[in-house]
Design a protein around this nucleic acid. Structure first.
Length: 206
DNA sequence: GCCTGGATTATC
DNA sequence: ATAATCCAGGCA
């Protein structure tokens, strides 16, 4: 076994019981553990509540969004594009639906060590072995899926920008709610650039 | 029921 | 640029 240290401390309820954007920043550098596999969180996105038009909870309480209304610290895992399971952690206060999407990990144990292995939210869950079977799991008390304190990340190392793949969210698509460790090799590709305007280009007139 | 459209990724 | 793949949510 590896020697124990301060970084082995588990993240508790109060860590997650804060606004999603705060938790999203704070999760950078923390270690996500799933069974025998683990990695350092290097990229996240915050989905801040029902008023956030990119957040699944914008439609209110449904079978899918139910877990987001639960306790902070619950895992919200859902199927994206019919192919990938994406992992979020519920944040904020009970009854207020918000969550943080974990988008990339630096591999630590139990998986291929290449930086691309867990780069991107879909590849991350595959590399870590997370599936929808873990939806609703409490990462504060679970023995199979949880976070450790990990390493310290200074504020100057954290970069932010618009979330990926949420162009449908109107003005919310531009909010800088994506966070990553600047320059880290495991951070997923930058957000898809907008297509170049073809014809004179006035389509963004608002 | 039927239809539309994804919090993605690999490949053309 | 687009296919892969299936489910949630809206509407009838």
């Amino acid at each position: 076994m590896v020697a124990s240290g301060p970084g082995d401390r588990r993240l508790g309820r109060r860590f997650f019981a804060r606004p999603a954007d705060v938790v999203a920043r704070a999760l950078l550098g923390k270690v996500l553990v799933c069974g025998e596999r683990a990695g350092v969180v290097v990229e996240t996105e915050a989905y801040v509540g029902p008023h956030d038009l990119a957040c699944h909870a914008r439609v209110g309480r449904t079978k899918r969004t139910e877990v987001m209304f639960g306790e902070p610290g619950l895992a919200y895992v859902y199927l994206c594009y019919g192919i990938y399971d994406l992992l979020n952690v519920v944040t904020g206060r009970l009854g207020h639906p918000e969550a943080v999407l974990v988008r990339a990990l630096e591999p630590l144990a139990g998986m291929d060590g290449s930086p691309h292995t867990a780069r991107g939210p879909g590849k991350l869950t595959r590399a870590l072995g997370v599936t929808r079977a873990q939806n609703g799991l409490d990462v504060v008390s679970s023995q199979e899926l949880f976070f450790r304190a990990g390493r310290r990340v200074r504020a100057e190392q954290i970069a932010s920008g618009p979330r990926v793949g949420v162009d449908y969210a109107g003005a919310w698509a531009d909010e800088p709610l994506r966070f990553w460790i600047d320059g880290h090799a495991a951070v997923s590709r930058r957000p898809a650039r907008r297509r170049r305007p073809r014809e004179g280009g006035h389509e963004r007139a608002t």
